[in-house]
Amino acid sequence: MPAVASAAEAPPAPAALAAKVRTLAPSMTRSMQRVAEAVAGDPAGCAALTVTGLAELTGTSEATVVRTSRLLGYPGYRDLRLALAGLAAHQQSGRAPAVTADIAVDDPIADVVAKLAQDEQQTLADTAAGLDTVQLGAAVGALAAARRVEIYGVGASALVGMDLAQKLQRIGLFAHAHSDAHLAVTNAVLLRAGDVAIAITHSGSTGDTIEPLRVAFEHGATTIAVTGRPGGPVAQYADHVLTTSTARESELRPAAMSSRTSQLLVVDCLFVGVAQRTYDTAGPALSASYEALAHRHHPRTARQGTPTP
């Protein structure tokens, strides 16, 4: 189960509450899910209820309501009620995002495009709203100073890992993405303090991704988890956890689709943050790579003074 947010942490803004519920609900107990679903479904109505009233409405206990409030990042139920009132005001003003409808088998292609676009926009907004920028900054700092970077992921997450590795390589970092579990573990054994290992797993429980991160963690490397389940098994081996969001899964819209979108946002944030911190070297490296690609695309103009056949 995810760790309860400490009282020292700033509670999420009202606009981020719905995203927080969508992200954490799958890992909650069933009774806590009922509370979370109630506050997300009717923030205005729940904001008017006492802790006892919400417990009665959801068929739970006052203790469950308080625990759910804290899990969502609020010191207590009173703070959650204030956030619910703010979220209700957003919805009434028309600024709150609508929940997209599932894609049907007989949907016209134009509707498919519109629904997928809305789904991805919602996923990106939820991820941005729920991303812990303190954790992100610490992860960027570790990457900027890293001797080497190893990235682990399987399936769609492996593709995201490859994307990050290629970006980091272009600014001069020694980075490698692994999709083979055996190679990932054998490389993780060689990591030490000053190295960074990144695990990308939406479920937070992918064994082939967790195992190399565990090995890297135990050998002293700084470890980062990019996951949609911040309370999942991967988190116990992560120094820094970056939480992604995902839309509701359906038959024609598997979780891998929207989780990939949110993962790409997070790795882009990591890359840009590292490029900013290492700009003295990253800037020239990017310029050199752009120039090399331009010469490859236009070989006849690459050599000045050479006549065109």
Rank of each mutant, 00 (worst) to 15 (best):
E150Q: 14
A96I: 07
Y152M: 04
T133I: 10
A128N: 09
V149Q: 00
D107F: 06
P97A: 10
G141K: 00
S93R: 15
D79I: 11
A83L: 07
E150R: 12
A145G: 11
A142Y: 07
P108A: 05
A117W: 06
L131S: 00
A85L: 11
V134I: 11
L159Y: 12
R95K: 07
A96F: 10
S93T: 12
P108Y: 05
L159E: 08
G155Y: 02
A129T: 05
D79C: 13
M162P: 07
A89W: 09
L82Q: 15
A104P: 05
R148S: 05
A125N: 09
A139L: 01
V99I: 13
A104S: 09
A85S: 14
R81F: 08
V149K: 00
A128D: 12
Y74F: 12
A104V: 05
A83K: 05
Q122G: 13
A89L: 12
A104K: 11
G73D: 06
R95A: 08
A96W: 09
A110N: 10
P108G: 04
V160F: 02
S93W: 11
A128C: 10
I103W: 02
A144D: 07
D106H: 10
I151E: 03
G94W: 01
M162S: 14
Y152N: 01
S93D: 14
A139N: 01
I103G: 02
P97W: 09
G153Q: 01
Q122D: 14
R95P: 03
L80G: 05
V140K: 00
V112C: 01
A125F: 10
L82G: 10
L136C: 00
P75E: 02
P97Y: 07
T100F: 13
G94Q: 01
D106A: 12
P97G: 09
A104N: 06
